[in-house]
Design a protein around this nucleic acid. Structure first.
Lengths: 252, 252
DNA sequence: CCCCCCTGTTGATTTACATCAACCACACGT
DNA sequence: ACGTGTGGTTGATGTAAATCAACAGGGGGG
């Protein structure tokens, strides 16, 4: 298995996204279960109504009751927890084809906040109905289990990053991870736009925003990337990978 | 919901553990689903044969195929990931009544190592059979979902700890968390024994072992705890809680 | 159009923790 | 009994990142 910083590759390419005009194809992106015919129709019934979320607004907040999970269709989100004294910890960024809300299953209420980083669109998946449907579709249930477990693996790799990597390594790992996830979804792995602020990257990586700026400067000085504002161009993918190679989980 | 550093209280007390002479009562501790009669018997069939794991030996290792999840019956475990260049990141400690192996579901192979911190005993739960059984027992499936989701919430709180807390706060949070989990299982929340070394606590909290020692000294100087070697006595539970109050997720 | 706020960048200084090092207690094996 | 190894504690010093601070660019609203 690939390191969590380099998510496991699945056979999904741009034509899948391009074809995503129905609700269900996004669902299949998140819960790729290989259904057919009438089963697809049953899956479709889970989706109440896909809807838009404006930049900066909350899709849900800590404590909201769990009604639906959400598949990101268009745009991007950050999830974050707020401490009593007001510090924010960003726990993840989510791009199209990824699922939001898994941490709510535990207590029937959302355990974090989800904010749109840009004008976005999601497919809500009514959770109680999903569980009900999963009863009669074993492969759907299995994929839900895997989805939850994958999130755990991802979080463990973040703990490894927080525990063992220095600031430049964290930043490189972040960029590589994002690049790979975008690539899986059919976007360019070398040229992309950061939808979040430096401060949010910093919170996610356990660093201050100034440290992110300096890290960017370091990577630029080494000729690994070209970053102007939020526009990223990766010049030396192998160089970036070498930077984080030692501090990651062995591949396979 | 309680902060992950203070796990949610469930109605489980020492008499549950004391009565744990069958395999199944440990399972019910992990997957408390309120089954009865013939359903319990079906659950029993999942358990191949409970077995002992000697101190210092591996229950499983990264890359091992997923055969079973494991419920800790007696003793304790650490789970850890090893980076390419040999650094260890401890991702969790596990006491009786807790489940091991959830991160393996994602890729059908274990994504971390699990080592016994003392002579221990586990109940293996054959995963393929568990999934099969869960199909016909919705409440079992629901509880598996919750178990997975709870692990995600726990990991997010660890990320918050790594991102926002200083060394003394992390140590206090660690002690409080352990205290609470032991309490739920029927052990004393004020007096307990650390089964792991300082170095392992450090790895878990993203600190060096010397920093753990100094943190212990600080907490002792403030009259909050008495720690001699691995024997812990919590003197001022409220004081400890105040120390971490500001940097945690709001309760409820 | 201009102003102001938000975001990002870079420099100077401080600091919390890591690192290096010495030492102690204890358990275990001979 | 002794030597040896492992785990734990404490002190001195180094350093990576936080903090404090100044400033620049750009976009939106009046």
């Amino acid at each position: 298995m690939a390191s969590s910083l380099v998510p496991e590759t699945r056979p999904l390419h741009i034509h899948h996204l391009k074809a995503a005009c129905s609700n269900c194809s996004v669902l299949e992106l998140c819960l790729p279960i290989g259904l057919s015919g009438p089963e697809v129709e049953r899956l479709d019934t889970l989706i109440v109504q896909r809807f838009k979320v404006k930049k900066g607004t909350a899709l849900y907040r800590t404590g909201d009751p769990l009604l639906s999970l959400y598949a990101v269709r268009i745009g991007s989100f950050k999830t974050s927890m707020l401490s009593v004294d007001g510090r924010e910890q960003v726990t993840g960024f989510h791009i199209p084809g990824e699922m939001l809300g898994l941490d709510a299953i535990s207590g029937d209420e959302h355990a974090c906040n989800a904010f749109a980083l840009e004008d976005s669109e999601v497919c809500p998946i009514h959770f109680a109905q999903l569980e009900k449907l999963a009863q009669s579709l074993p492969s759907l249930q299995h994929n839900l289990n895997r989805l939850l477990s994958r999130e755990i693996v991802r979080d463990h790799s973040m703990l490894m990053l927080m525990g063992n990597m220095n600031s430049d390594e964290r930043l490189a790992a972040f960029l590589l991870n994002l690049s790979q996830r975008l690539s899986i979804r059919g976007y360019s792995p070398r040229d992309f736009v950061l939808k979040m602020r430096r401060e949010e990257i910093g919170s996610y990586l356990g660093l201050r925003l100034e440290t992110i700026c300096r890290g960017i400067a370091h990577l630029r000085d080494q000729g690994l990337v070209e970053i102007a504002g939020r526009e990223v161009k990766i010049l030396d993918m192998e160089g970036l990978k070498q930077l984080v190679a030692g501090c990651q989980r062995p591949q396979h």
